[in-house]
């Protein structure tokens, strides 16, 4: 029997779906759900984590993220402007910084800030305690990434915008502040939002600084609960709470990208 081209295509597609569904069914039926739910989905343990999971752990995760983001954004903007500067040493310094901090694990940087800075400056400390150390420790790495994002954003603003502004008598600084940067930031909002999502997850490294019950964040909180209850359910709870932060942000990114696509 000879199939028409159309029928053959439909057959292949149906076969593809069938294989996909079968694969899922095999995995679902083969898994030992009782043991799995006993390990990861224990309602009593999950309930026992509240309200601290939200009032302390989730709250601190958000605070760490925002602090590091603001610090990283500020430093990142300075680095981006230095990279685009006409002054060679500025460009060198910014490039060296970006290459260094993009190449180092965030964990190492956090560790160096948490323990290296107190050793280097015994009489001083980073203001804000753990909050200050996290801001700097995570912000230093975030700044390197954001600097590159912002630089790309600035370069994506057509050169004519700066020329038009200068032609109207604006100084270079005034033209950057009033004309170029507002448009650059509009371009980089989606990638910067992605940066917040990455930072949110990087706050799980804060445990290396030794947090107290008051400054604990989601991952450490879940890890501690895991140790006391000898059950990994808290990890699932923490994971879901991370999604509470990151999923809306992903939606924001998608909406912004759609809007940008429309305006183009």
């Amino acid at each position: 029997m000879k199939l028409s081209r159309r029928r053959r295509q439909r057959l292949v597609r149906v076969a593809g779906y069938a294989v996909f569904v079968a694969a899922i069914l095999v995995v679902v039926t083969a898994a030992d759900w009782d043991r799995l739910s006993d390990a990861f989905f224990r309602g009593d343990i999950a309930r026992g984590m509240f309200p601290e999971a939200i009032t302390v752990a989730l709250r601190n995760t958000i605070i760490y993220t925002l602090l590091a983001f603001v610090f990283g954004l500020t430093l990142g903007l300075v680095l981006a402007l230095m990279r685009l500067s006409s002054i060679l040493p500025y460009r060198w310094a910014a490039t060296a910084y970006i290459e260094l901090f993009r190449g180092l694990p965030a964990l190492l940087v956090l560790f160096m800030v948490g323990y290296g800075v107190p050793l280097a400056f015994p009489d001083r400390e980073i203001p804000g305690g753990v909050y200050g150390s996290v801001t700097v420790g995570l912000g230093l790495t975030a700044a390197a990434y954001m600097a590159e994002t912002i630089r790309a954003g600035i370069q994506a603003v057509p050169k004519g915008q700066l020329e038009a502004a200068r032609t109207l008598g604006m100084s270079h600084t005034r033209a950057m502040v009033s004309i170029v940067l507002p448009q650059a930031f509009r371009i980089v909002i989606p990638p910067l939002t992605n940066e917040i999502i990455l930072l949110t997850k990087d706050t799980s490294l804060v445990y290396v600084l030794g947090v107290t019950p008051a400054t604990i964040e989601l991952t450490k909180f879940a890890g501690d609960t895991l140790n006391t209850k000898v059950n990994p359910t808290p990890l699932v709870v923490a994971g879901l709470l991370y999604l509470v932060i990151t999923l809306p942000l992903s939606q924001v990114v998608r909406a912004l990208e759609r809007r940008a696509a429309r305006e183009r």
């Binding site: 004519g160 915008q161 020329e163 038009a164 200068r166 032609t167 100084s171 004309i179 507002p182 448009q183």
Partner: peptide, 20 residues
């Protein structure tokens, strides 16, 4: 030069209006 440019209007081929 900023002072001088204030007195010189310029119109570009690509308009260069401020998009924001």
């Amino acid at each position: 030069i900023d002072e001088v440019r204030r007195g010189i209007g310029m119109v570009f081929q690509q308009f260069n209006l401020f998009g924001h």
